[in-house]
Computed example of a mutant assay.
Amino acid sequence: MVRRRTLLGGVAASGLLLGFGAIPARASLLPVRTCADWGARPPSSPTTVLRQRPVRILVHHTATENVTDYSEAHAYAHARWIQDHHMDDNGWLDSGQHFTNSRGGFLMEGRHGSLDALHAGDRIVEGAHCPGQNSIAIGIENEGLYTTEEPRPDQWDSLVSFCVYTCEQYGIAPTEIDGHRDHYADTQCPGDKLYAALPRLRQEVARVLG
């Protein structure tokens, strides 16, 4: 319970107990680490901020090793690796996803400006996580490969917490939490196990939101 309360930070203070807990009066601040916190490079060109609310959340997995290092230091290093891959190999201006959720349950801003936009609740930074969805869907990467195993409890709890806050901020219905493969045929993301858990994710988010 100590780990969960540490993870939730300000959200727990507002009455939110994740996953199987009580319904809050209102989801509050999330402990999302900023790009500056994890040492992100600056974007190669300015990001595009759209004055519109996203209509859904897209859940991804990074399809990387299911490591047993659950530390904050590893989470930060992995975020830097993703950004380097997206910028140097894919030629994108920044990390493609809006947010990242590590194996240890550390939530991090992905593309610069995404956290400020989320807190404002009235805008979205255009991403690069799914063709046709980058200006209307919030993309969250979950570190790991979830074809044959499910996310760890800490990672699952932080995903629920993130979705609760994001749905509330943007007025997104829990039914609009989808997998990457729902909107892009040429992928198995977020893996069969995590994809099969999405109905439970929607239910848990809906229960917390009441």
Rank of each mutant, 00 (worst) to 15 (best):
R181D: 11
A196H: 05
L17T: 09
E72W: 14
P151G: 13
G9Q: 09
Y184L: 07
P24E: 02
R41L: 12
R33V: 03
A36H: 05
T147W: 03
S135D: 14
G210W: 04
R53P: 08
A197Y: 00
D88C: 06
V205N: 08
T6I: 05
L18G: 08
R26E: 12
E143F: 03
L159Y: 06
V125N: 05
W38Q: 04
I172W: 07
C35F: 04
G132N: 03
S95A: 12
P199V: 06
E149L: 03
I177N: 10
G171L: 06
A77V: 01
N101M: 10
I23N: 09
F20Y: 13
A75E: 00
G110V: 01
C35S: 15
A128N: 14
R26S: 13
R207D: 14
E204S: 08
I124G: 04
L93R: 15
R181A: 15
A63H: 06
W92S: 05
Q83K: 12
V55S: 15
H119Y: 13
S28N: 12
A36L: 08
V164N: 09
A117T: 01
N134P: 06
G179S: 13
D116Q: 13
A13F: 02
H61M: 12
G110H: 00
N66Y: 00
G191L: 08
G104K: 03
P24D: 03
F99A: 02
R202C: 10
I172R: 00
D186A: 14
G96H: 05
S14C: 14
I172M: 11
L93F: 01
E168R: 11
G121H: 06
F106T: 05
G171R: 08
Q155P: 12
D157W: 02
L93A: 13
R123C: 14
L145Q: 05
G171V: 07
T166Y: 02
A77K: 06
H119D: 12
L93H: 02
E204A: 06
R123G: 05
H86C: 07
R111W: 06
T166Q: 00
G113R: 04
D89K: 09
L201Q: 04
A75I: 08
T175G: 08
Q188K: 11
S158M: 15
F99R: 05
V32Q: 03
E168Y: 13
G15L: 10
L58S: 01
H61G: 12
G132P: 12
G21P: 09
I57Q: 05
M108H: 11
A206I: 11
R202V: 11
D157T: 02
C130A: 15
I124A: 12
D154R: 12
C163S: 15
I138A: 06
C167M: 04
N101D: 11
Y170W: 08
G39Q: 10
E126D: 09
A25W: 04
